Simulated assay, not measured.
Amino acid sequence: MEQLSEYLMTQKITPLVNRYVITPPDGGEVLAFAEQKRLALKDELTLWNGEDRTRKLGGFKARQVIDFGATYDVTGPDGESVGAFRKDAKASLVRSTWHLTERAGATTVGKERSVGVALARRGWEVLDLVVPVIPVPPVPFVYHFDFVREGQPVLSVERKWGIRDRYVIRVQDPSLDRVLALCMAVGLDALQSR
C-alpha cells in the first residue's frame, strides 16, 4: 500500500453491507477496498488492495460479541498484529472518543473536534428514536476526529459535507501503520453509532 499522508475514503451503503473505497485525495486508482456486514454479531472487516480482492492488506475484528466498549484487533496482510482500537463508552456520552494502540504500545486518543456538532448529532438521533412516526431524514453531519499522542497530531478523519459519505484521512505521523490508520477510519464510520 502506498505510504501517502492523505487519502480519500468513500462509502456506499447497500442493503447488506457497507462498502468503502479508499483512493488518493484526487480520487485516482483504488488503493484499498473493504466491505463490512451490517448487523453482524461480531464485527469484522477485511481491507483489500482493490475491489477484485486479489491481495489482503489487513483488517480488524472485535474481540467479543457486540459491546459498546469493544476492542478491535487490527492485523496486517500476514495476520500479525499491527495494533488495536476501542471506543471509550463513558467519554463518548458527550463527545465520541476512541483509543488507538499501535503495535509498539503507544496509545493515541481520538476525539470529535466539535462538542457542539457531537451534541447536535446526538439530539438528532434521539429525536429519531422518540418520534418514530414522523420520518426524520438522515442529516449528514460533518464531523472531524483528531487523534493526538503526547500533544502531537497523529491522525485526523474528516467527514465532508454532501449526500455521499466521503472522508479525508490525514496521517500526520509518518510512522503510523497505514493499515491501522485506514482500519480506524473505516471503524469510525462503521462502528460510530454503537
Rank of each mutant, 00 (worst) to 15 (best):
G58E: 07
G105D: 13
P137K: 15
Y7P: 01
A40L: 00
R178F: 08
L176D: 06
E44P: 01
R170P: 04
V139L: 12
V21F: 03
E125K: 00
R159C: 07
R38S: 04
K61C: 05
V157T: 04
V126S: 02
L176A: 07
G58N: 09
G83V: 02
F33E: 01
N49V: 03
E112G: 13
S193H: 05
L119R: 14
E35W: 08
R19M: 05
A104L: 10
L119V: 15
Y7D: 02
G187R: 01
V65N: 06
D165K: 06
D67P: 01
F141G: 12
L47G: 01
P138W: 02
R63F: 01
V186Y: 02
D165M: 04
P140I: 08
F33A: 02
S193M: 00
M184E: 05
W98F: 15
L47H: 03
D128H: 00
D189K: 05
V82H: 00
Q152D: 12
I13D: 11
K87Y: 05
Q11S: 02
G110N: 06
G83S: 13
R55K: 14
R121F: 08
G151D: 11
V171I: 15
V131I: 11
L129S: 03
R55Y: 12
M184K: 00
P153L: 07
L180E: 02
I13A: 11
L4A: 05
E112F: 05
L188T: 01
R170D: 03
E150Y: 13
I66N: 03
R159E: 09
G58Y: 05
I66C: 07
L180D: 01
V30F: 01
D67S: 09
R166E: 15
V74Y: 07
V131W: 12
F68H: 09
G76Y: 02
W98I: 02
V186P: 05
V74K: 07
G151L: 09
G105Y: 14
Y7G: 03
Y20K: 03
R121Q: 13
E112A: 12
V186C: 07
D128R: 00
I13P: 06
T71L: 11
G69A: 06
V154S: 10
K90A: 14
T23I: 11
P140E: 09
V171C: 07
L8W: 04
G83K: 03
V139T: 15
V186S: 06
P132H: 11
E158Y: 08
E35C: 10
D165A: 12
I66Y: 00
G69D: 11
